[in-house]
Design a protein around this nucleic acid. Structure first.
Lengths: 210, 210
DNA sequence: GTCTATAACCCGATAGAC
DNA sequence: GTCTATCGGGTTATAGAC
């Protein structure tokens, strides 16, 4: 089952301290951003003192970088599986979008971390987020264009279409605290997520299918 | 209101300094977030020292709050005009969406500030962002539902539809540094914005119109 | 209104004992 | 691996001179 974020720490199978730190650090960074979280916050969440933390990671930036890289590689791995699917036409598009939703549903906090990186333009990190994701973006755009050429999809600008999909899906998760106040249900409840996913898929289908 | 010339002049000077501080503060907060900007940064941008800044605003939080409230009321005023339009059917929907685009295009930096507020759930502020915007959100949803009842629009969940539109439009502006790396043009160039706007409108039209 | 000087605090990071 | 203690630098905010 995906989503080892939800892994429960049993008393028998204890995770290494490093792993514990990475887990809590991601939570804190997602909640308050890079500048907004101190090593004290992370150390307190783990249950150790700040200097002990810096014994495992040589700096705050190193800790952030490692946590973010782990998240990113996990996401790319899962998206690759969806993209490699042999489905065709609308079904394949639906599979990829669903994978995106599942990704975010399994790691609701991490979405906000990704969003903060996009906002800052990757300032905290050496790696260029858009450069890493661009191959996937190009592949998806080319797939859409092929479908439009074949007449399976109505013709749109594939890249702007993908950007619109990216924004509408990601925002629902990243802005959940804000959206909570706009709708009556809790945005991140299982029912609300399913409802939003089904709506977005139905909406894109109506626009794309001739 | 009436007063001798000296009083008027000095009042104007006070306001212009305050105004200058508010302007630079918005820029800084949008660029680096609340925690990421220091009063030194703002003071340097204005060209004064930090203590002088705190002579005009009693705290960093007060400065942030006032800047944000001004931005918010400006936006609501402009959106109200669009919503009060007497157009009907698709045209009215297009007018409101276009107003949103124009809003963001005119204040590209402020979009990022709004996004940061949505991410944090309004942590820095006393005011509840979603509570302020909810009346507009409800009005828009009821308008959409009326159109669907009349058969002008294909039936979707109006609220999830609005959330999707909100995400796809806002993200394009807020994540511009990230999107720059995904497309070949600059995301916030006049041409790119017009292109994205026209695409989103055409896309929503294809999905909504029966 | 703006300034210098300073108070009080929190931060990341290091040194060294256990 | 974890701790106490501490350094050096940053922050907001205040006091008081000009």
């Amino acid at each position: 089952m995906p989503g080892d974020d939800a892994t429960v720490l049993s008393t028998r199978e204890v995770l290494s301290t490093r792993e514990l730190i990475l887990h809590e650090a991601l939570q804190c960074f997602a909640d308050a951003g890079y500048e907004g979280t101190s090593l004290n916050d992370i150390a307190a969440a783990v249950g150790i003192r700040r200097p002990s933390l810096l014994h495992h990671f040589e700096s705050k930036e190193a800790l952030y970088g490692e946590a973010f890289e782990r998240l990113l590689s996990d996401w790319m791995e899962r998206l690759d599986v969806a993209i490699a699917s042999e489905a065709i036409g609308w079904e394949k598009f639906e599979i990829v979008l669903s994978a995106g939703f599942q990704l975010f549903e399994d790691n609701p906090n991490y979405v906000r971390l990704m969003r903060r990186e996009a906002l800052d333009g990757g300032g905290h990190l050496g790696i260029d987020l858009s450069a890493v994701l661009r191959p996937m973006f190009d592949a998806a755009a080319e797939y859409l264009e092929r479908q439009m050429d074949e007449g399976t999809f109505r013709r749109f600008d594939a890249r702007h279409l993908l950007l619109a999909a990216y924004g509408s899906i990601l925002s629902y998760f990243s802005d959940a605290p804000f959206i909570d106040g706009l709708i009556d249900d809790e945005a991140l409840s299982k029912d609300s997520i399913r409802e939003h996913k089904e709506h977005v898929l139905r909406f894109f289908r109506a626009a794309l299918m001739v």
